[in-house]
């Protein structure tokens, strides 16, 4: 008996020692898309945060060594004025991801507020949603360019210019969720218990919409990064002295046949981040939507 107990405990200890690695392997095997996409995203976030230490000054010119292909010293090659594409790509990640995060947060906060008010207070609904429809009717890029042209280019303006056309989409989705949730029996029950409006909204309605909001935020994040790149590419975004993936691609376009790496590396970075964010959004949507999880639904209903 004693032997069984001791061997049991050591066995369990061993299992525990293995379990972190084993659990990681199991996690990757079980949800490969989630593991890979969040891995890529985390890598880029780390790169963006650490770029001052990982990369040199992105503005240093070195005309004699311009348009050099990737090599052991210049991993990503150099551009038309001899700046390091590696340094600039890493610094560019800061702009791209920074704009992505800022727009996702702004859009989510404003969109959720607008959507909840429109969905819960029927009187406000018509006015607010018609205004949102009007904003949606304007092409996002046109609106952003107009805003930048109007007040000049700065990070704040770019984030605003990209957020404004995204907000109606978030607001619409939140409103739709609220319209469904407000009819739920537990919301009615909370009203019956004399709950105040703000506690009904915050405690009973908003948590039910959290899943779709999170998923929508990932899509906003991805499209904001693309929109920032487009604006910079068109010259209406980040100023030329600040490296961003968009203006790097714009500059690299002229040398595409001669030095494809100038455009290639920022484009690859943008594609990887956008892809991983979108995949992450898809996985979250599947995980958070009970109707797409037949086994869980079978147990709970």
């Amino acid at each position: 008996m004693a032997i069984t107990v001791s061997s049991d405990s050591t066995g369990r200890g061993l299992a525990r020692g293995r379990s972190l690695a084993a659990r990681t392997v199991r996690f990757v095997a079980h949800r490969p898309v989630l593991a890979v996409s969040s891995g890529i995203l985390l890598l880029f976030v780390a790169v963006a945060l650490l770029s001052p230490w990982l990369a040199g000054d992105p503005g240093t010119l070195n005309p004699p060594r311009r348009l050099k292909p990737p090599s052991a010293t210049q991993w990503f090659g150099t551009d038309h004025v001899g700046r390091s594409v590696f340094d600039r790509t890493l610094w560019g990640a800061r702009i791209s991801l920074g704009v992505g995060f800022a727009v996702a947060i702004t859009t989510t906060v404003v969109g959720v507020l607008v959507g909840i008010v429109a969905g819960y207070f029927r009187l406000a609904d018509t006015v607010i949603m018609r205004a949102m429809d009007a904003v949606m009717a304007i092409p996002a890029i046109l609106l952003a360019i107009a805003l930048v042209a109007l007040v000049g280019s700065s990070p704040l303006v770019i984030v605003t210019a990209i957020s404004v056309p995204e907000i109606p989409r978030m607001a619409r989705m939140v409103r739709a969720s609220v319209l469904v949730l407000r009819e739920q029996a537990y919301v009615e029950a909370a009203i019956t218990c004399g709950g105040r409006v703000h506690s009904i909204l915050l405690r009973h309605i908003l948590p039910g919409a959290a899943g779709p909001i999170l998923v929508q935020a990932t899509y906003v994040f991805a499209s904001a990064m693309i929109l920032e790149a487009i604006l910079s590419f068109l010259g209406a975004g980040t100023p030329p002295n600040v490296p961003s993936w968009g203006n790097m691609m714009a500059e690299g376009r002229q040398y595409l046949q001669l030095a494809p790496w100038i455009l290639g590396f920022p484009a690859l970075g943008l594609a990887l981040v956008v892809l991983s964010v979108n995949l992450l959004g898809d996985v979250w949507r599947d995980m958070l939507d009970p109707s797409l999880a037949p086994s869980a639904a079978g147990v709970t209903r």
Binding site: A185, Y186, E188, A189, H204, P207, G208
Partner: peptide, 13 residues
């Protein structure tokens, strides 16, 4: 008190 105890409680609280 309502008829439906299954749906009258907030599922995430």
């Amino acid at each position: 008190v309502f008829q439906e105890p299954m749906t009258s409680l907030n599922p995430v609280q």
